[in-house]
Nucleic acid binder design. Structure first.
Lengths: 343, 343
DNA sequence: AGTTTTGAGCGAACCGTTTCGCAATTTTGG
DNA sequence: CCAAAATTGCGAAACGGTTCGCTCAAAACT
């Protein structure tokens, strides 16, 4: 039904080759250019990208695999990724891994069959073995937020160890010594955030009792449940570092439901400034990832890889951004002269 | 690089037509079937869906347009939609409308260019005029959760008016008279939920002072800000009905941060059981949409439409599900004998 | 003015499938 | 046992573009 390049040919009397050349930005005589443009206008012609794809072997589609599409963090990423991809004329095929490694493996197959030009992955698998098929076919891959422990791919994220280290450092500088942590220890980022926490504690010569180390699966409940337990502890911590968005929100809920409040009874430092900052009072200290820049960079790299046919050889890129510590009023000052209860 | 049907032809000595027939489930002599299967196995052949698409004029791709990919409600929908679509061998191209009507209009163009086989839309536009191009091309469209006021399309959602009506009715039956509402009045569902609220109030002969009617744009802040204001009112309402997920969460936050608590000081009835129920205590009463069924149904209808070439003519389907009122402990009983403070 | 260079247009082949109409073979039935 | 019917296989033409190598005319040199 829609007009094809052949209709343009009939209308203008030019050859397919010439018209195709015009469509792809080649040089055409002014007279012919006019002819073609008039015909396109009249017939409402639009190039059929899938036909073009067949011969150029491109789909202008990027596959995006995420560990859980329901996660607010992921939603936020997707938001930026989508916008950036569109700027490049690309669409994206999203696959939700349901936090399941097996599903993720199948999703890869699916996307490969769809002939995506590239892959953007926030993985659930810790190992990159399952990405083998992508490597074999030569589809460029960029990892976001999480890397593998065994396979190298282009990567964009933050320095998680450093991020946590800096955050905990702030707590320490405010005189806190009994500092607990609630974070995931399952996937990439969580593990390094835990490390950063431990390092800061060790450096300051602070001990970390078993019950202050609250680990589990990245989730809302993780924060909620563990914060409840921490608050009920005999030897309650004076501060808690929360290692990701969902967990932070859960922790906040737990405090809100208790008799206690921050910064008076407990100091908190959270992660990822998604919507909390617009809602929670008193404002909490937050380690903020530059989501927009990260996504833009990831897409940039991917576009680069797609453009230059060559596989990256041994020049894999790992871009880590710094985080921003957004100040809040959720930390009580336990040293120095100020009276913390005043705030 | 990957094997093509022609490689199979060379290996087996059969014709393209026969092999194609086999691939599409046609009948082939047992001997040939074996031959083909062996060749496929050996060459790791997989059909190139985009080449197939060129001739069948199908992409096995569905376009999904959502008003805001960051919304938890949307994320949840996407989760189910994705799973269901995959069962049918379809992938989905997601477009985020950024809550912007203009962007949504452009997204449609984009998806149409990508030749999606069908469209699933949770729209931001109130009017369906912008869907004209889809109609013209004959791409089937199914609306989810929100319908247009002026154009008819297949639709799957809930009876919003009824849902709100039933929820508010519960509050009334518990003896509440000063009942406030916080909901969106911008898009489809919000409008009808407001109507349901008003109807229930009117029926019960209850008045709705201006300051009890809190309307605005579907958001977290809407609930947060307005709940704060309601709680600070001279003539504070005894109950509040919250009209959607984000708003409910905001409202809960606001109460949690105040000196007050439910059900003692204020009764609340929320909407959409996404993650709250797993976290908020005491449990709140919730109007629960059957997300999974809705998504499955929407996909079903779409598949149906895609299958039968014919445009639906005048037989447009509108499927509305009932909601489930999930009981909680967030409503104080103001009539009857029970002592509410006991719980 | 003659030769080289440059630039645009063209025909045909190709990308990897499906499908149509027909030929060949097998099965059915009288 | 032969004609009719049913089944399977085949060649070729699509689908809607891109691209390669060639021709030809105009522009740029000696």
């Amino acid at each position: 039904m829609p007009a094809t390049i052949r209709d343009i040919k009939n209308k203008t009397g030019l050859s397919l080759a010439t018209i195709s050349k015009y469509l792809n930005g080649g040089n055409v005589l002014p007279r012919n250019r006019q002819l073609i443009e008039a015909a396109i206008e009249e017939l409402h012609y639009e190039v059929n990208e899938i036909a073009r794809g067949l011969v150029t072997n491109q789909t202008k589609l990027v596959g995006v695999m995420v560990y859980d599409i329901e996660s607010l963090f992921v939603g936020n990423m997707l938001h930026y990724i989508g916008a950036e991809l569109r700027r490049h004329g690309y669409g994206f095929l999203i696959c939700d891994s349901f936090n399941d490694e097996e599903v993720e493996t199948q999703n890869l197959q699916f996307l490969l069959k769809k002939k995506v030009d590239g892959l953007l992955v926030i993985p659930v698998n810790r190992s990159g073995k399952f990405m083998e098929p992508a490597k074999k076919v030569g589809v460029p891959v960029v990892l976001l937020d999480r890397a593998f422990y065994d396979e190298e791919f282009d990567f964009v994220g933050i320095d998680n160890r450093m991020a946590a280290y800096r955050a905990v450092k702030v707590l320490i500088e405010n005189g806190h010594e009994r500092i607990a942590v609630i974070t995931s220890n399952v996937e990439y980022s969580g593990i390094y955030r835990l490390e950063g926490y431990l390092e800061a504690m060790k450096e300051a010569g602070l001990s970390v009792p078993e019950e202050y180390r609250r680990l589990g699966k990245h989730s809302f409940e993780l924060g909620y449940k563990n914060m409840k337990e921490l608050l009920a502890l005999q030897e309650r911590p004076t501060a808690v570092f929360l290692g990701n968005y969902e967990t932070t929100l859960g922790g906040i809920m737990a405090v809100n439901e208790s008799e206690l409040s921050w910064p008076k009874d407990i100091s908190i430092f959270g992660f990822d400034d998604l919507i909390m900052s617009r809602v929670v009072r008193p404002k909490i200290w937050i380690a903020r990832q530059p989501m927009e820049q990260m996504c833009a960079k990831a897409v940039d790299i991917l576009m680069e890889r797609i453009g230059s046919k060559q596989t990256p050889e041994e020049q894999i890129m790992k871009v880590t951004f710094g985080i921003q510590l957004r100040e809040g009023e959720s930390i009580r000052r336990l040293n120095g002269r100020e009276n913390p209860s005043g705030d």
